[in-house]
Computed example of a mutant assay.
Amino acid sequence: MSGPETVKPVPEAPPNQGKKTPRDFLKSVIGKPVVVKLNSGVDYRGVLACLDGYMNIALEQTEEYVNGQLRNKYGDTFIRGNNVLYISTTKRR
């Protein structure tokens, strides 16, 4: 039998050297116009008011687009995170 093994500590990840994380991106677009694409293919365009760790999203001045066509305009909108495919920035028309 050999002696006790020494356990080497796991090296820490290097600091985030100028690279943006998804969290950094999401923080940077709060208060700005975004497009939220749902799994169903519907797009919601509006100003990102806030979001949480589950990707639940609150939008203001929201427009709903189905197949690229404007369908509805809403004031404030809440989108449940499990429906979100992606969030992207956009220029408002």
Rank of each mutant, 00 (worst) to 15 (best):
S2I: 03
Q17D: 14
V10Q: 07
L51E: 08
D24K: 04
N67D: 15
P11N: 00
N72I: 05
R71V: 15
R80W: 09
V10Y: 04
I87D: 00
T89F: 07
M55Q: 08
V42Y: 01
V29W: 02
L48E: 05
T62L: 03
P4C: 03
S2K: 09
P4N: 04
V35H: 00
N67C: 05
L70H: 07
S28N: 10
E60Q: 14
V10C: 06
F78A: 15
G18T: 01
L70V: 09
K37D: 10
G41M: 01
G81N: 07
P15L: 02
E63H: 07
N72M: 11
R71H: 10
L48T: 09
G68N: 06
G3Q: 04
N72Y: 12
N83Y: 07
V84H: 08
T6L: 12
G68I: 05
V35R: 15
Q17R: 11
N72S: 14
P15M: 02
G53V: 05
L48R: 11
E5R: 04
V47S: 15
K27Q: 15
K20H: 11
R45P: 09
K73L: 06
E5S: 15
V29Q: 00
G68R: 04
K8H: 12
P14E: 08
R71F: 07
P14G: 00
P9I: 11
R71D: 09
E63Q: 13
R71S: 14
T62W: 00
N72H: 15
S40R: 04
Y86E: 07
T90N: 04
V34Q: 06
K27R: 14
V10T: 10
N16Y: 03
D76C: 01
P9E: 11
Q69D: 08
K19V: 10
T77Y: 06
Y65I: 01
S40L: 07
F78V: 12
M1S: 13
G41W: 01
V29R: 00
L85C: 00
D43E: 13
D52I: 12
L59V: 06
D43Y: 11
P11F: 00
D24S: 08
G75P: 09
M55K: 14
L38S: 05
Y54V: 03
S88W: 01
N72C: 12
I87V: 15
A49H: 12
E60V: 03
R93E: 12
Q69Y: 07
K8R: 13
C50Q: 15
F25H: 12
Y86G: 00
V29K: 03
R45T: 12
E5Y: 01
I79R: 00
P33R: 09
K91L: 09
